[in-house]
Simulated scan of single mutants.
Amino acid sequence: MKLLIIGINIRHIACSARRAGHEVYAVDGYCDLDLESCAEDMALLSRDGMDDPGGADRIDELISEHVERVLPDAVVLGPGLEVARVKGLPVLNNPAEKTARISDKLYQARWLEKNGFPFIRTETSAEDLNFPVMVKPRQGAGGVGCRIAEDSSRLEWEEGLIAQEVVSGRAASVSVIGDGKDARALAANEQLIGESWTGAKGFRYCGNITPLEPLPKNDIANMAERIVARLGLLGSNGVDFLLTEEGPVVVEVNCRFQGSLDTVECATGINVFEAHLNSFRGLLPSRPAIKCTAGRAIIYAPCSMEIKESLLFPWTADVPRPGSRIERDDPILSILTKGSNRGEVLARLKDRAAMIRELTTCSSRR
């Protein structure tokens, strides 16, 4: 199948589709070195005007321009563009209206409560919650903009924020394939959040280890399947959890490809994109067996920098080109590894993170 895959960062989707044997045309905001090897052709996504009033129309126009250029059989919308509109072609995503609704964290909390799933109390202000509270964007991903307000004097409120009660627990996720009626879990994953050795700050998402070790007593894979099935979701979706002493609590539902794609594929041997594509034909995979432990870590820039030399190694992904400018606290690249257990994988991730830090020092400040 000839596919146009377009989004802010689509390397993981494009390379999975290429491994599944599809003809991939990639458009994203980075055009990283390793994306080039996965695509017949790639183009830089112009983000000018996307955040302005009428930005949605600008996005739709951009997609139309690339559709006319590539003439694909189908379009896959990646991160940042999942609610865009595409005319005249199959779109291998959840419907835009459903994605927009489910991406609303206030809607999610209300839906989870109504349907009897463990949820985090979520309000449109902090007035009815006890401090400290978690403040986060009502729409957002990757932990960007999430922070804890210890009391009302430290509460900086802006339009588009929500407040949640603070829940402590181990961060986990389940990768799920849905066919609109039923769902199948591929793997439960540990989430790496705000790990200092990656350079991430606060609650920033910085990777995964698959499988989750040890698994909780509660079957979070089964719970994730029920959530995705009841929401009527298609293709690749994810459900995030906090594993507390009282049991698992659902943090959010992500109706899109997840950052865990690399580790799920490595740990299970399944091709996530092919499973995603088959779901639109009403076909779901069996739950795959775990073959190894796999890890991915996202390394963040400690300062604004220019990439001076190639960082393309067999264990790096999302690799910027030499000469690229990376802003402070933005991702530099991802590192990947596999091993026989969590401890081994985590140690290798930390070693490779240290190597990247040595190669991207702050001596090259602008």
Rank of each mutant, 00 (worst) to 15 (best):
A183Q: 11
L192F: 12
E195S: 14
N222D: 13
A224T: 10
V249G: 01
A200H: 05
L243D: 05
E213I: 06
G238Q: 14
N222G: 09
G202H: 04
G232E: 10
A200F: 02
A185D: 10
G238F: 03
I193S: 14
N208L: 00
E213D: 15
G199Q: 14
N254S: 08
T210R: 00
V166C: 13
A172F: 08
G247S: 10
S236M: 13
V166Q: 11
K217Y: 14
R184Y: 09
V251C: 13
A185Q: 02
G207C: 04
E246M: 04
G202A: 05
S236K: 11
G238T: 09
G238K: 05
V167M: 09
N218Q: 13
R204I: 02
L186E: 00
G232S: 03
I177H: 00
Y205C: 09
L186I: 00
R170G: 07
I227G: 06
V239R: 07
S168G: 14
I193C: 09
K217V: 15
V249Y: 04
L233M: 05
N218Y: 09
K181A: 14
I177E: 06
G238R: 11
E252G: 07
P216F: 12
E225H: 05
A172W: 06
P248Y: 01
N218F: 13
R204V: 07
G238P: 11
K217P: 13
P216G: 06
V239K: 06
D240M: 13
G232K: 09
A221V: 10
P248A: 06
E245I: 14
Y205I: 02
L243R: 01
D179N: 12
I177C: 10
Y205K: 06
L186F: 00
P214F: 05
G247R: 07
S175W: 00
S173M: 00
N222L: 15
T198G: 02
I220A: 08
E195W: 04
G247F: 13
D240I: 13
E245T: 15
E245C: 10
D219R: 00
K217W: 09
R256I: 03
I177R: 01
W197L: 01
K217D: 13
T244H: 08
C255Q: 13
I177Q: 03
N254H: 08
M223T: 01
A188S: 09
A221P: 01
N218E: 13
P214G: 04
A187I: 03
Q191P: 08
A188F: 05
E165V: 11
S175N: 09
P214Y: 03
W197Y: 03
L242H: 12
L192G: 10
F241I: 08
V239C: 10
G180R: 02
V174M: 04
